[in-house]
Nucleic acid binder design. Structure first.
Length: 279
DNA sequence: GTTTGACCTGGATCC
DNA sequence: CTGACCAGGTCAAAA
């Protein structure tokens, strides 16, 4: 059964799903296959509507709506912020949305992402899901749900290495154990402010300032989170005149202060623009 | 508070 | 074809 969501603002699935915030969407014949609410489905844009078809499990419309953050008006954010480069990036990448992913999957994914690259990250996550996840089939595509903390704690370090995690395997294992043993629900942090959430995330092994800020902006709706990776750092130094010597934390704080309440969303546009058009 | 180097690993680049 | 090198960070050590 086909579901439709009428779009009020432009949505570009290619840009939203393949701009380095999510790692396991697959495109086939104009459909994008992947997981929302950890259930397998496919999506496409047609006639100003977002259409989707679920596999075995039904995904409610508001979950899909929320995944793409469709309640946030990007027009207003960028119109109200007078900055040349941001305006250019916005026009060039219009329709790219900052996603609201599952926080648990997001946390593990970005721990794995440390000092790596997108194809490798995707592959590692895929192997992990294939090993432990629930198998879904839709058309001729197969999808595996993202494993729970207790499932991951059942793995050995050598199994982690066989997925290509390298030294990040022990971080993933330890973080899963902490979450499992303390019955932590990351979704509780929807109700906490940015600073408290950040402080808590930093207690997990393998989570530094960059990874924590990724989890906050790409899953926990902290729109002023501001991950400073290599690309954003270059951007701040080359295009905004920051001193290269400034610490990463201070660069992050500068960004949050300069770009404001929605600095995380603006950051994602600038980050992607820098990577794509302006190395 | 900063700076430095080790850390897994697959793939691109350059001899 | 081998080997150093790099890539969307984190952590621990530093007389």
């Amino acid at each position: 059964m086909m579901n439709k969501i009428i779009l009020k603002e432009k949505l570009d699935l290619e840009l939203s799903l393949f701009s380095g915030q999510a790692f396991r969407w697959k495109k086939k014949l104009n459909w994008y296959y992947g997981f929302i609410d950890n259930k397998f489905l496919k999506l496409r844009i047609k006639n100003n509507c977002l259409e989707y078809v679920c596999s075995d499990d039904w995904v409610a419309q508001d979950k899909v709506y929320d995944y793409f953050g469709l309640g946030i008006k990007y027009n207003e954010i960028f119109e109200n912020f007078d900055d040349e480069l941001s305006t250019v990036a916005y026009k060039k990448l219009q329709g790219m949305r900052v996603l609201n992913q599952d926080p648990w999957e997001c946390l593990i994914s970005f721990i794995i992402s440390a000092w790596s690259n997108v194809p490798k990250i995707s592959n590692t996550i895929h192997l992990l899901c294939q090993k432990l996840g629930y198998k879904y089939i839709l058309d001729d595509m197969v999808g595996y749900s993202f494993p729970s903390p207790i499932q991951i704690t059942g793995l050995t370090e050598s199994e982690m290495k066989s997925f290509g995690m390298g030294y990040r395997g022990q971080y993933v294992l330890k973080t899963s154990k902490i979450i499992e043993e303390n019955k932590i629900l990351l979704s509780d942090f929807y109700n906490e402010d940015y600073f408290d959430s950040l402080k808590f995330l930093l207690t997990f092994p393998g989570v530094g300032d960059k990874v924590a800020n990724c989890v906050l902006i790409y899953s926990l709706k902290k729109y002023n989170a501001f991950p400073v990776d290599l690309w954003v750092e270059r951007l701040l130094v080359e295009d905004y005149g920051l001193n290269k010597k400034m610490s990463l934390i201070n660069k992050r704080k500068w960004g949050q202060n300069y770009f404001g309440k929605y600095s995380g969303i603006i950051q994602h546009y600038l980050f992607h623009y820098k990577r794509k058009y302006n190395h």
